[in-house]
Every structure is written in structure tokens, then in C-alpha cells.
């Protein structure tokens, strides 16, 4: 799993690629926590290069969304979600909790 973060005027674009499972989810959580500790609560997660995500990754997303939405200070949105991952997110009812965009830059513009 690879994570990189790019700063925009109103939000950060977090690109995640590879596989997120119980082994790698803690790194994902850590990367998101680091941004939130800096006071960045508007996050776009670009999943373009993501091959796989288990419920361990879903839990990391849920925790970040809770933290970001607290006091209406921000939001986590998802972009370029691959079909298989989107289907699993739908099964888990997560597509109700996250706005999703096809284009990462559209997501950036929305925040």
C-alpha cells in the first residue's frame, strides 16, 4: 500500500494505491490521523490505484469521517473508486456515508 498527500487551497488530496487489509490499514489510519492532527479536516481520498480494501480499511474511513465531520469542520469524500471496491462499500452501506466523485479534481472542487 502506498499513500501520498497533496495540499490544495481548501482540502488535501490523499492518493492511496495497492491493497488495504488488516495488515496495512493501521498505516492508512496513521496517515489520515496525521492530517487531522494538523487541523486538515477536508479530505479527498483518491482510490484510482487501489486494488483491494477489506473492512479494516472501511473502519479507517469511518473513523476519519466521524472525526472530520465533528463540529461541521470538514468531510471525507471519495474519488475514482474502482468497481469492486465500490460494490463492497455499497454492501456495507458506506456509499450513504461518503460522497463519491468520478474525478478526483471534481471532488477537490466540491470541498
Amino acid at each position: 500500500m502506498e499513500i501520498s498527500s497533496k495540499e490544495f487551497k481548501h482540502c488535501n488530496l490523499v492518493s492511496i494505491s495497492g491493497r488495504v487489509d488488516s495488515a496495512t490499514a493501521p498505516q492508512f489510519t496513521q496517515a489520515l490521523d496525521k492530517l487531522m492532527e494538523k487541523g486538515i479536516y477536508k479530505l479527498v481520498i483518491d482510490m484510482h490505484g487501489l486494488e483491494y480494501m477489506s473492512s479494516a480499511g472501511f473502519r479507517a474511513l469511518l473513523a476519519a469521517q466521524r472525526n472530520c465531520k465533528r463540529y461541521n469542520r470538514g468531510e471525507v469524500v471519495l474519488a475514482a473508486v474502482p468497481d469492486r471496491i465500490r460494490e463492497a462499500l455499497e454492501l456495507a452501506g458506506f456509499t450513504e456515508l461518503f460522497k463519491t466523485y468520478k474525478e478526483p479534481l471534481d471532488a477537490v472542487g466540491s470541498l
Binding site: 477489506s54 473492512s55 472501511f58 469511518l62 469521517q65 456495507a92 452501506g93
Partner: peptide
Amino acid sequence: VKADLSDRKIGGLGIYL
């Protein structure tokens, strides 16, 4: 899986899937 963000439980998701 239809609960609001604040009521979402973290556990049991793997088994549900």
C-alpha cells in the same frame, strides 16, 4: 448498515460482508 454516521458500529462488519 443503514445507521447514521454517529450510530455506525465499527465491529461485525467483516462477518456481515
